[in-house]
Design a protein around this nucleic acid. Structure first.
Lengths: 237, 237
DNA sequence: GGCTTTTCGTGATCCTGATCACGGTGCGAT
DNA sequence: ATCGCACCGTGATCAGGATCACGAAAAGCC
């Protein structure tokens, strides 16, 4: 089955290859079956908006493939990216549960597919499947932890270089492969800047600086971590 | 009934004066009754620690009276205060639900009473009272929102004066009385600094500066907001 | 009431990162 | 090919806070 943007469409949650790993995916078959019925699915191009900060919550999106960035902006045009979401992530959960406006904007940065579940259907489903409600609470707790991690990096370390090093290390842990550690870069400097609360120029300079110090090396869109220990020392001086 | 530190002890959730307002308090009588049975209560002096960041979660605390500050620290000794909790707040909820270490330290800054519910008892209670589990999810969502608000202020406004003005306005909205708006100051400059991610000295200077500009006025421990509009202009320039 | 301890006010210095500015590079569209 | 556009690299400048330092004021404590 083919879709726009050269993607395969996943048309059944029960046979989804990443089913085991995530909330709403790793559930008793009966529940997944039910989910499979109440969801609708769509494929989104790059820079499509799933929802926008401040909108009334329509429901949740379960990202099946692709990547999305979650961000929040100020009136002054400043933006913070709070998370890069990947396959399996549930977007808009807290807003939908609590019926408050979406607290972030979700924008695709790599094209992909997402399932949508309306608020009503979700609440109805949760009431029928009490065991899943607790899972939701756990997921919300995890989100909360992640948010806290954000607060810490933004609040406890007010030097961009520290935050930058921390970000690189985070990447090397989650998506890093092999030794030397390689990470594929998908974000622009601008976006990186928005993740660590600084400016595009500073990110550029940090890259240069880290390259000069042999901490990292750049091969096209691939970042190679050359001196992990030194990076860790920057984070915890 | 009298307790140490000159406080009255509240010995029954059903007759608690703030029962109406908060999670775990505003519940069907049967549920409150049950809660009343599984909780234990204690009175804490100033600077008592309810729990410490990184500890395995023992359970949740429901603050009945007094105030507590929630903070998180880095290895480098830097500290951020993420919230000042007041009567009715539930502390340690997300850690307890998800069984991860407490993500913050909770320290009393005004003596008060707190009920404690062990993790096991809470989970058992939630499984018996399914309707409360959703309430918990809602509460977690609210916490999450609050955390987001923190990220925004720390990430979107990197000028201490902006954050300071924002903090003052926040105070005037929640605890402000009368016109001119009066707010009782209970935090030290150091603590204020930890709330807005700056240093003690900068907070001192900001107070002076705001006083010189007639934005606020200080009468002992009482802060009077003289020019709310100007403060708002600092926040949204 | 005197003692220690915490908290506050403010000056002087220094340095980092924001901001502005401009040219280079790479890539997709036509 | 080449035009256009988004992205990147780097220099120059500048201000706002962090940091250090010290004394004054206020708040607990016998």
């Amino acid at each position: 089955m083919r879709a726009p943007y050269g993607l395969n469409i996943l048309d059944n949650c029960l046979t989804c290859p990443t089913r085991e790993e995530h909330l709403f995916c790793n559930l008793p078959p009966a529940a997944v079956q039910k989910l499979n019925e109440i969801r609708s699915t769509a494929v989104y191009p790059k820079s499509a908006m799933l929802f926008i900060e401040g909108q009334q919550p329509r429901g949740v999106f379960v990202l099946c493939t692709g990547k999305a960035k979650l961000s929040t902006s100020s009136a002054g045009g400043r933006t913070v990216i709070t998370k890069i979401s990947e396959a399996g992530d549930v977007l808009g959960l807290s807003a939908t549960i609590s019926n408050r406006p979406y607290e972030v904007t979700a924008e695709m940065i790599e094209p992909g597919q997402a399932n949508f579940i309306t608020r009503d259907a979700l609440l109805h489903f949760l009431r029928e499947h009490g065991e899943v409600a607790l899972r939701v609470a756990e997921q919300l707790s995890r989100n909360y932890y992640a948010a806290y991690e954000g607060i810490r990096t933004l609040g406890l370390t007010n030097s961009p270089s520290e935050r930058f090093a921390k970000l690189l290390l985070g990447w090397s842990n989650t998506s890093g492969n092999g030794d030397p550690l390689q990470v594929k870069l998908t974000l622009t400097h601008e976006e990186i800047a928005e993740m660590i609360g600084t400016t595009r120029e500073t990110v550029s300079r940090l890259f240069s600086q880290f390259r000069r110090k042999q901490l990292v090396q750049l091969k096209g869109a691939t970042l190679i971590i050359r001196n992990k220990a030194a990076l860790e020392k920057i984070v915890n001086p």
